[in-house]
Design a protein around this nucleic acid. Structure first.
Length: 420
RNA sequence: GGAGGCGUGGCAGAGCGGCCGAAUGCAUCCGCCUUGAAAGCGGAAGACGGGAGACCGUCCGGGGGUUCAAAUCCCUCCGCCUCCGCCA
């Protein structure tokens, strides 16, 4: 949720953010007036409660007839309090509904527009010039015995797969390398729950516009996470953290589950877009004033990891309309996919400022010892999809794939994956 | 799955219808004492909302109810613990 103080002090900033996202600007004024009404109802109820409290003490001391008379009056008072509290509850509900409907404030540096309006911040490496027709990752992996899509479909349906043999080994090597890097950079490694409660899923902002993306276990009132960002954000819910020595950083390893509703026909080949994959995710809790700098650091660590698989990529600053509900700014690193002649997302790092933390009750103490809402950020360190980039960029004419040097130790020293 | 017990401030732990936002201990912070420290003594100190402030309201796992009045009684949900059964 956005900071209501900002809304009251500078509603135009919130309107501008809504415009940038292509969201309803009218919600801003609705929320403002609902908040006004809420404040009125609270002070009326407070005054009545104070009166009732005073009154209750008189009754406690009174005796006999005097007491009976007071009891009669007490009933009237109780009815008034009840009515005022009902009004307050209703006003608060109205504010909460509108408040939740407004996504995070967009950072003013973010380019306007939708999915196509990203700004390219830089390119790293040159797409390789092939002197043969490059195969796509599915052909390569099938020949290597690294994946089994047919049986994935047989067992679980479309967009499911088995990583087999060297495919499974490669993923473990990759994710382990990510964990090692994270540890070296001072992150605490976490293996997180993949099922979370509704409050946690909602608190991270995934039950808003993108709720249809999330798997739900209705019988148990639990959600399958699409990223370990969710349990990591919930980890410190309703806590006051000590952030005086700098950000708290976690690296979460989990399977991730996505319904991919509305992406029919998109990326149907191979393991680019699947219902279940594995990921190592970085997550930071910090003071809001440090969030922009932390965002740059997370991007830096993503690039450090990308360098280890040695593929060409570019970094983009996602446009306002393409930001998630919780993000104020998002940088994606997109690797070159030769088979598609296109850059595709491998990492994504979002600065959620105080949006998630406010919903989840994550705070820290400022210099004066007062609790303040923290900021949260997240960023990808490695995923199953990275295998696609490795396969396609390091393939050779005979269908073999050169293993990037950094991954060789994790694969028992293998330098080249050979077709079977 | 069955039976029972328990959820109170940073922690431990009283309170079980009416000056209880809550005793006490530990931990914390500030004084005094000390060359310095410990001990000892004195004091401060929860969170949230409102108000310029005095101060007011809310919060005793969550929600609902009974009552003039609920940390205290009732219902319900969640969590933790113990025993039995079942499965890994």
């Amino acid at each position: 949720m956005i900071d209501l103080r900002i809304l009251r002090d500078d509603p135009e900033a919130v309107r501008a953010s809504q415009r940038a996202r292509g969201e309803d600007e009218g919600l801003v004024d609705q929320l403002l007036s609902a908040d006004e009404r809420r404040r009125g109802s609270v002070s009326r109820a407070d005054a009545l409660r104070a009166e009732q409290k005073q009154f209750g003490r008189q009754v406690g001391k009174a005796k006999g007839e005097e007491r009976d008379a007071l009891l009669a009056k007490g009933k009237e008072l109780a009815a008034e309090v009840k009515a005022a509290e009902a009004e307050q509850a209703e006003a608060e509900q109205a504010v909460a509904t509108l408040h939740r409907a407004i996504p995070n404030l967009v950072n003013t540096a973010v380019p306007a527009g939708g999915e196509q309006d990203y700004a390219v911040l830089k390119h790293v490496g040159e797409p390789r010039k092939f002197d043969f027709e490059p195969a796509d990752h599915l052909d390569l992996m099938t020949k290597l015995g690294a994946v089994d899509m047919e049986r994935g479909a047989k067992v679980s349906g479309s967009r499911f797969y088995f990583l087999t043999g060297v495919g499974a080994q490669l993923q473990l090597a990759l994710l382990n390398l990510a964990v090692q890097q994270a540890v070296a950079n001072g992150f605490q490694v976490m293996i997180t729950p993949a099922l979370v409660r509704p409050e946690i899923m909602g608190g991270t902002g995934f039950l808003g516009a993108h709720a249809s993306e999330v798997y739900k276990l209705a019988d148990d009132d639990l959600y399958l996470v699409g990223t370990s960002e969710v349990p990591l954000a919930g980890f410190h819910a309703d806590e006051i953290l000590d952030l005086s020595t700098g950000p708290r950083r976690y690296a979460g390893w989990s399977s991730c589950f996505r319904r991919e509703a509305g992406s029919y026909g998109k990326d149907t080949r191979g393991i680019i877009r699947v219902h279940q994959f594995d990921k190592v995710e970085m997550f930071s809790y910090c003071k809001p004033a440090e969030a922009d700098a932390e965002h740059e650091r997370l991007l830096g660590w993503e690039e450090q990891m990308l360098a280890k698989i040695d593929v060409p990529y570019r970094v983009i600053d996602t446009a306002a309309g393409d930001l998630g509900t919780s993000a104020s700014r998002k940088f994606d690193c997109e690797a070159w996919f030769p088979s598609q002649n296109a850059y595709r997302e491998l990492t994504s790092t979002s600065n959620c400022t105080t949006f998630q933390a406010r919903r989840l009750g994550v705070r820290y103490r400022d210099e004066d010892g007062k609790p303040q809402t923290a900021a949260t950020l997240n960023g990808t360190l490695a995923t199953t999809r990275w295998i696609v980039a490795i396969m396609e960029n390091h393939q050779q004419p005979d269908g073999s794939v050169v293993v990037p040097e950094a991954l060789r130790p994790g694969l028992g020293g293998i330098e080249v994956l050979e077709p079977k």
